[in-house]
């Protein structure tokens, strides 16, 4: 982390004022004005050190980033860690590519302390975006200098399509192999075991295994077959493509919340029916980064 020092805009305003004082001091050969002038200059010099040290022992660690859908707010955090034995004040964060009114300030971090800084941005379009770097700066204490260092984040984030759509779920296609068209987990085929969670219905607990001294497990029954529920681009033929993407994303998230396996068909891509966070993420990413020019 290299900290750079610049004269700030305010410092640039201050210099003509110092120059005016110098003129007055020279013109009147006024030693007292000289003293005030030199005191201010020295103050400026000393403030450089303070401005520098305000950032020098600071570590900026990337924090978390929440998923975001178009039209919503992007929320992410950075963790500011002060390794110094003194408090640190007035740390501003800024993205070089952000609009001019983007400003996040961390007012103070206690000595050896940690502070989480939250960023919230409005996002309007879907797609894959980057936060390449974050400029951390401080003009404490006098505002005459600005110490800056750039934290490389190289964050890539996907803004998923807006979740909305007027359509009903498509009817599920019967599985060609098992003829099973069950919508929900809980078919007849034994699917697997998973750990019992407190408060769950005990109907499907594998009591036999419990009797053998194993921990409580819940038998999960699946509908064995796959490929029942397909969210298909072509089903939505009459909508424009953004609405289609929103509709598909909406369905996908709904299906995921209900635990229903689903498949996704896009003009150039296809995701066979599955469930789980990874699958959802892949589908949503595909929807978010969809472009007609694929590949």
């Amino acid at each position: 982390m290299r900290t750079q020092l610049y004269l700030s805009r305010y410092g640039l305003v201050f210099i003509p004022i110092l120059a005016a004082m110098l003129l007055a001091a020279i013109n009147y050969d006024n030693n007292l004005v000289y003293i005030v002038l030199f005191l201010l200059i020295s103050l400026m010099v000393v403030s450089v050190v303070y401005t520098y040290r305000n950032l020098a022992r600071l570590e900026i660690r990337p924090g978390h980033m929440w998923p975001v859908y178009a039209g919503g707010t992007l929320r992410y955090t950075l963790v500011v860690i002060n390794h110094a034995a003194y408090p640190v004040y007035g740390i501003t964060f800024r993205r070089p590519d952000a609009p001019p009114d983007f400003r996040v300030i961390c007012e103070s971090v206690p000595p050896e302390g940690t502070q989480t800084v939250e960023f919230i941005e409005q996002v309007h379009t879907r797609g894959r975006f980057h936060i390449r770097e974050m400029q951390v700066a401080s003009i404490f204490p006098l505002g005459l200098f600005r110490s800056v260092h750039n934290v490389r984040l190289n964050w890539e984030y996907v803004v998923y399509p807006q979740l909305k759509g007027p359509r009903q779920w498509p009817s599920s296609e019967p599985d060609p192999r098992t003829q099973d068209d069950g919508h929900f987990r809980g078919g007849e085929n034994f699917y697997g075991l998973r750990n019992y969670q407190q408060g769950e219905s005990q109907r499907h607990v594998d009591w036999k295994a419990v009797a053998r001294g194993r921990p409580m497990m819940v038998k999960e029954f699946g509908s064995g077959g796959m490929g029942r529920l397909w969210f298909d681009w072509r089903q939505l033929g009459d909508m424009d493509s953004e609405s289609k993407l929103s509709q598909l994303a909406y369905w996908a998230v709904q299906a995921d919340q209900m635990g229903v396996p689903f498949g996704l068909r896009l003009p150039h891509q296809e995701f066979p029916p599955l469930s789980g966070a990874l699958h959802l993420q892949k589908c949503l990413t595909a929807l978010a980064t969809y472009s007609r020019r694929w590949p």
């Binding site: 030199f38 020295s42 103050l43």
Partner: peptide, 9 residues
């Protein structure tokens, strides 16, 4: 800061 800036002044 004032104290520290005295010597230079």
């Amino acid at each position: 800061m004032l104290l520290q800036s005295l010597p230079l002044a």
